[in-house]
Nucleic acid binder design. Sequence first.
DNA 1: TTGAAAGCGCTAACAA
DNA 2: TTGTTAGCGCTTTCAA
Lengths: 329, 329
Amino acid sequence: MANIQEVAKKAGVSVATVSRVMNGNTSVTSATRLKVEHAIEELKYEPSVLGRNLRNSESRLLLVLIPTISNPFYTEIINGIEETAIQNGYNILLCETDSSVQRENIYLNMVKNKVVDGVITMDPAINVNKLNDLARQYPVIQCSEYEEGGVIPYVSINNELAAYHAMKHLIKIGHERIALINSDEKFLYARQRRQGYNRALKEYQLPIDEDLIYHTDQLDFDYGIQAMRHLLQLEKKPTAVFAVSDTLAIGALKELNESGFQVPEDIAVVGFDKISFTNMTNPTLTTISQPMYKMGSTAAMMLINNIMGKKVESILLDHELVIRDSTLG
Amino acid sequence: MANIQEVAKKAGVSVATVSRVMNGNTSVTSATRLKVEHAIEELKYEPSVLGRNLRNSESRLLLVLIPTISNPFYTEIINGIEETAIQNGYNILLCETDSSVQRENIYLNMVKNKVVDGVITMDPAINVNKLNDLARQYPVIQCSEYEEGGVIPYVSINNELAAYHAMKHLIKIGHERIALINSDEKFLYARQRRQGYNRALKEYQLPIDEDLIYHTDQLDFDYGIQAMRHLLQLEKKPTAVFAVSDTLAIGALKELNESGFQVPEDIAVVGFDKISFTNMTNPTLTTISQPMYKMGSTAAMMLINNIMGKKVESILLDHELVIRDSTLG
DNA sequence: TTGAAAGCGCTAACAA
DNA sequence: TTGTTAGCGCTTTCAA
């Protein structure tokens, strides 16, 4: 691949002039510009991003940190991030932390090392102190999961309200014993959704039965199966289940089918996220729709603005309850 | 962030010595090394990857091109690529082409611009000529989809044989009218799976009925639903369906459930890939298991070897027929 | 309008 | 063993 010097030589001008042409600088006569463009064409010159980046100390790369690529929830967010990034001349470096501290370190160093210009993190298990440290000097945005009252800008939804809506729906169609399949309450979203769960029960003067609350370590299908299996062993079984992730809800649905329970006649199920699978299950799954694509594109826009030195505000996007067969008794 | 000069100054040595310490060069006395390490610690020095890369003309970044992030099939492959890349000191730049020529161009230019050291492509719709051009000068590996008889090293499975196995299974349990939900046969894997379909039918002296072969434009669930809807309108309906992707098979299953057909009693279904959701459907889906993780890690290893100047050989990995409820009548 | 030259941060060849 | 220095490819300041 030809470099700027060869182009300059071929065109009979200086490298500065070539650079000016490349960057659309106006102070070049059209005659010179033509000569240079000709040389560029002839040599099939493509400027080295490395050289340019070193000089400008920018990489036009955004780091995107996700806990796992396997959950379709993240997939849609990533679509939103990527589209917006590309539109603004950035590319994304997608990295899975697997919630491992070691990986997290590697990736956060990429920010310090200027491999990337900024970072969007969706990992709920990330070390908050380290992240705050980083955010003092570099552009950082949190997406979906965030630190309450923290200093890092975020985009998310109102998890408490969303959970409240899901619960209210179940209560209104007559359920009184509603199980909650939650993830670890060390995560903010888990705590918030739990609060929404509690609020709805209180509002309708229903008791909070700790037996009906199950915590899972992870969000894979299998954990939903296990949770449901546990709940079905209770003496006083629930008549409805609210899972904080569609993947868990799908696992629960599977276990109910296997065990011969009818959904929603015997037990109703509500999920959370509206991943595309939820339309393929039998019955289809009632769920809270998160604006995943928009969340991603908003996060990307915030990060890019932040990189360009603008001040950005945190934002909570709207959710929506999508009622499907798993609660239509 | 401090740079190498500041560290050198603080340690009272030259930048070359700091560089030597950073790169584990042995010809440094332990006294000097100590001084330098001290300075590095004190200034929290992290070498600039940009400077290093420009100098070494390498980025230690691998480009991974996928048609869409939404298909879980790719997710597992990516896991394999990423793990292997990290183990070897590389990171991956994951990019969705959406099978768009424009995006493809942007990304392939990243190789020429040395933003990345090499590329693994899984996009079946990629421009083969352009890719071959690129491969003349830069490390390129094809994963899953490849050019038959081409010059670019690839890792894949024996698609013809896999499809043959799936069909043989259906025939052996008594099916004679077996529909094929295939994707566009402009893709090699679609042609190969079609060949396996044909071979099995011929071997058992069953007729090839073109009415039973349906081609979809994409692999999303919805396309599987549509395909099945079409097949159910035939006068002589199939008794079994083989879909070349689990996502299509899941859509087909959905449509069968909706229309009141029993699977596998009325119609049996076989998918392809073994994505994790195939264990959640009702009934669970018989499918061809592709070694996705291994495919990814193999591709990454091939690319890294290629970057290091080694010659690499194409390889076909083993598949496996996983028999589940959707064919257990 | 154009060119010369400095410099981004690093590594490695060469010299001492 | 250590230091000096050129140079990777580019942009931008300053001068002409």
